[in-house]
């Protein structure tokens, strides 16, 4: 990978935080949490992953989110859904 490519990727990462507008479904203490990026509190908390994803899809358009990110229990990405 060229130095220019590395610098470009680093810039992408540097700009990603403040501009993020995604919905996340992730595991937390045995339950599944729906979180809008940048929010300090969860939008909703569910007993099952399926219920959290159903709720997330319902809110997807409402929040005008750019993507819905479904996480594995270890925090890695299982699915990344865009409009």
């Amino acid at each position: 990978m060229t130095r220019a490519t590395v610098k470009a990727i680093e810039k992408d990462f540097r700009n990603a935080g403040p501009t993020g507008n995604k919905l996340h479904v992730f595991h937390r203490s045995g339950r599944w949490v729906l979180l809008k990026e940048g929010a300090s509190r969860a939008s909703s908390i569910h007993d099952s992953k399926a219920a959290a994803i159903t709720k997330a899809k319902a809110l997807f358009d409402l929040h005008k989110s750019e993507a819905l990110v479904i996480h594995q229990p270890d925090g890695s990405i299982e699915n990344f859904i865009t409009v």
Binding site: I9, K22, F26, S40, V69, H71, F80
Partner: peptide, 23 residues
């Protein structure tokens, strides 16, 4: 720890988007 976990999920989401979708 709850907040750190939230921020970590945001990072992994952005990381996936940048590396897979854009790069």
């Amino acid at each position: 720890a709850n907040r750190i976990w939230q921020v970590y999920t945001e990072f992994t989401g952005d990381s996936y988007d940048i590396l897979i979708n854009k790069r």
